[in-house]
């Protein structure tokens, strides 16, 4: 099974995002594989092992993303491709992924359901549309039997069990697999695994960030005495007017 796992390089989700001059100032932050992508990667490693296949990790980003890509190699990907460009928007990233996929014919293209920085949740759908493939989002369980996949996908208020043949695209989330922590051997071998850097294909600029805004902190929490819940009801009704 040839598997492509697409990852985003994002600030650690525990970090508070600092803003300077109206823009996120990410310089001092630790970067990680986006959490949902990390879940997808963990399952991709297991499926590669199960099928004795090949797992390629793909990241659209500049050279500063390479430590994150090496981490994915340390966790278990066999080789890596970095498309050397700023991931400006979902359409740009999807175009790059689709281009790589056309050249390599993967059986499965996996990624997280959304990145934790721009939260677009669009790349999987765009890649699927560009390649004419079916797409399952959010995929919470993925098992393979030959070339037929059985997946759980979340729906509003529940879940569905679905079946489909490869090839497909899936946007994954927990509990698809447990996050894997690279071991020492993984970290050592990751240094010598192939990481190919390719140039992006050109696209028109579809969307552009015009400005950022940090939500105003809620000014003051009005504290109510535990013995007087009636006051809370009163405030919700007459002050906040939400009940």
């Amino acid at each position: 099974m040839k598997i492509l796992i697409c990852i985003s390089h994002v600030p650690d989700t525990n970090a508070k995002i600092p803003f300077k001059d109206g823009k996120p100032d990410l310089a001092g932050l630790t970067f990680v594989i986006a959490p949902y992508d990390d879940f997808a990667l963990a399952r991709a490693v297991e499926l590669r092992d199960q099928t004795a296949g090949k797992l390629t990790v793909l990241c659209v980003g500049k050279a500063d993303t390479e430590p994150t890509i090496r981490k994915a190699l340390a966790i278990g990907a066999d080789d890596a491709i970095r498309v050397d460009a700023e991931p400006t928007d979902a359409f740009f990233v999807a175009t790059q992924i689709a281009e790589i996929a056309k050249q390599n014919q993967y059986d499965m293209i996996l990624m997280g359901r959304e990145s934790s920085d721009y939260n677009g949740g669009q790349v999987h759908g765009m890649v699927a549309a560009m390649l004419g493939l079916p797409c399952i989002v959010p995929c919470m369980k993925l098992d393979l039997n030959g070339n037929v996949a059985t997946m759980y996908r979340e729906i509003e208020g529940g879940k569905e069990v679905v079946e489909l043949p490869t090839p497909f695209v899936a946007g994954c989330q927990e509990p698809i697999a447990e996050w894997k922590i690279p071991n020492m051997r993984g970290i050592m071998t990751a240094k010598t695994k192939p990481l190919k850097v390719v140039s992006p294909v050109a696209t028109a600029i579809s969307t552009q960030v015009a400005s950022y805004e940090v939500p105003a902190a809620r000014s003051n929490c009005k504290m109510i005495d535990a013995a007087n819940v009636g006051q809370l009801v009163e405030l919700l009704k007459n002050e906040a007017k939400v009940i």
């Binding site: 600030p11 934790s116 920085d117 969307t207």
Partner: peptide
């Protein structure tokens, strides 16, 4: 954006 930590204005071209 940033999972609820900020907002952005995006121009659709």
């Amino acid at each position: 954006v940033f999972s609820g930590k900020a907002y952005t204005e995006v121009a659709l071209n």
